[in-house]
Every structure is written in C-alpha cells, then in structure tokens.
Design a binder for these strands. Sequence first.
DNA 1: GGTTTGCGGATATTATATATCCTTAATTCC
DNA 2: GGAATTAAGGATATATAATATCCGCAAACC
Lengths: 162, 162
Amino acid sequence: MILKSQVEWALHCCAILAGLPEGRYLSTKALAELHGLPKEYLSKALQSLSQASLVDTTLGPSGGYRLARPSSEISFLEIVEAVEGKARSFTCTNIRENNPCRPAGYCDSKPCAVARVMWEADEAWRNTLRRVRLSDLVGTLSEDVPPDIWRDTFEWVLKRAG
Amino acid sequence: MILKSQVEWALHCCAILAGLPEGRYLSTKALAELHGLPKEYLSKALQSLSQASLVDTTLGPSGGYRLARPSSEISFLEIVEAVEGKARSFTCTNIRENNPCRPAGYCDSKPCAVARVMWEADEAWRNTLRRVRLSDLVGTLSEDVPPDIWRDTFEWVLKRAG
DNA sequence: GGTTTGCGGATATTATATATCCTTAATTCC
DNA sequence: GGAATTAAGGATATATAATATCCGCAAACC
C-alpha cells in the first residue's frame, strides 16, 4: 500500500502556489524545474488538481496554475484525493460468499465485519488529512526553511512566472 | 493506494483459526476451499503470518496452522502488517533537495513538513488497527452470522482438520 | 503569426500484485 | 519401513498499476 509519488509532488507544488502573489500564475515548467521533476508527468498531477477545482489555470505565456481558493480553505485530504482518488484502501471482495455452508442471501444485510474495521481505519487516515489545511503546511515550512532560502525560492519562481 | 487482497484473506483465515478447538490445526487446503481462494497463493499469505509468529505450524496429515496466541492478544495491525509489510504508505523522496536556491545541507535536520503530516495520518490508520483485537472481530462475526451457519462452518472445517 | 501554455489521448517502460509450479524436509498413518 | 500429506520456499509466468514520454489541439499572449 504505497501512495503515488504524484501525491508528494502535488503537495509541494500547492505549497509553492500558496505563496504566490495575488493574481500570478506558475507554469508546469517552473514547478518541474524547481522540484527537479519530469515536466510531462508532473503535468498529469497538476491536471488532477485542476479537475478537482483546487487550482485555476490560464493559457499562454505568463499562464499556468494558481490556487482556486485561499490556502486556509484547502485541506491536505482534498489534494491527496485529487491525485490518488477517493477509493478506500481496502476493497472487500466478499469472500464470505464462497463459504460452502452459507446458503445464498444470508449475511448480506451489512458489509463484512472485516471490511468495517478496515474502513474505520481508512476514515481515521482521511480525518487526519482533512484536519490539516494547506495554510498549516505553509506555516510549518516557513518555520523549517531558513528565511533567506524561502525568499530566494520565490524570487526564482517569480522570475519564471511571466 | 490499495491493500493486497492477501490482507483480506489473512484476516478471514485468522478469524476461522480463532474458532478452532485447542490444539487443532487447519491446513491451507481447507482454508482455501472454505473461502474459494487459490490454494498456492493463499499459502504465501499464511507463510507471512507464520514468519510474523502469529501462527504455529506443523507438518504432515492433520497438520496446518493454528494461532500462536489467544485471539485477544492479536491485533488487526499485526495481521495486516505481517502481510502488507510495515513500511509507511507515504515515502518522502525529499524533492526539496532539488530546489536550486537551496545550498546543500540546509533544512536537513528534520524530515520534510509534508512527510510529517502524511506520517501522522499513517499513524492514525495504524492506531485504529492496533486497537482492534482479533477477538473483537470474532465477536462481531458471531453476531452477524446466523448461529446455525456459524456452527455448520466449523463442522465443515473440523472434518478437514484431521 | 509565432510562441507559450494547459489539456487530453496514445504509447512505452518499469514495478508490483497475482498466480502457478516444483522441490525439499518434516510428520502422520498404515 | 513406506506411502501420503503438509508447510516452506525458490523459480517463473501473467495481469495490473505506476511511471514516463510524445504528440496534436485550442486558447492566450506578444
């Protein structure tokens, strides 16, 4: 059970977008170079964010991506689910159906007891991610990263933002 | 991010093993037939349980698997981790290292802020599974499954347990 | 009109999950 | 002692998903 690397990419990209000045867009190319990622494949992750309406896009030079909402109104979970999908990590294939002692139709009222536990754990995972906002990440990052590097990064980025 | 189907298989098999009379073993063949699963591949899942010391095994006719401990002392997490592994679902590839504005050696003291959040969610998932004991599952199952089917199932199983 | 951009489709490559087969050694039963 | 049965583990094949690249399109900018 491993998340796609695109999840990591999307989160880091959103953190950068959260720091962009109002109205500016940042292109796939700039985001890929900043993070040392394959441009074409990163583009797929950004398209997922766009389809989930987490980012706005615009075309042409000076085009690219920006957050569709303030970073305080975007949760980790939304970003993760945009890329990874909303499907639960445990899929019940109902193997209890195969029990040769089980007449058809029995015990079909509720989902399987095993699945209920696994889904509860899945919910706990999602709830944790739901509670963390993108603005929280930006806050933590600006504590962790030395201020001059943080500033240099955004200068570097804005030079490429058209 | 999808768990292997072997996780589901292992959980259902442990639930059956938990209901076995003291000292009896149940073979891969019987467990596979009961659940309608491919015997050879299910065997790999059971071997994982054995390697994790969750089950005891013995050879020969009337051999097979039994729980190594009372079901109240085995958690869901142990079974899941035995099959799925203990690795976290999010792996940080440290793409912040690629930031061209970042001199080497900076911000390497703590793990990445993104990873810390993802790992916290992973812990929430594991904690939920850690709190559920195999005996809890057996309890739920015996509420869900009609008593006569539950009884028939164990008669069926014991006929094959040598 | 030329350049840049996001978007989506098609395709190739790699890794992982799923599944089967076979050999070995231990155990039970006759 | 000999035949049958079992778990263990290595080797291998197949299917599916993740990773990655390439191309053509339409919109936006200069």
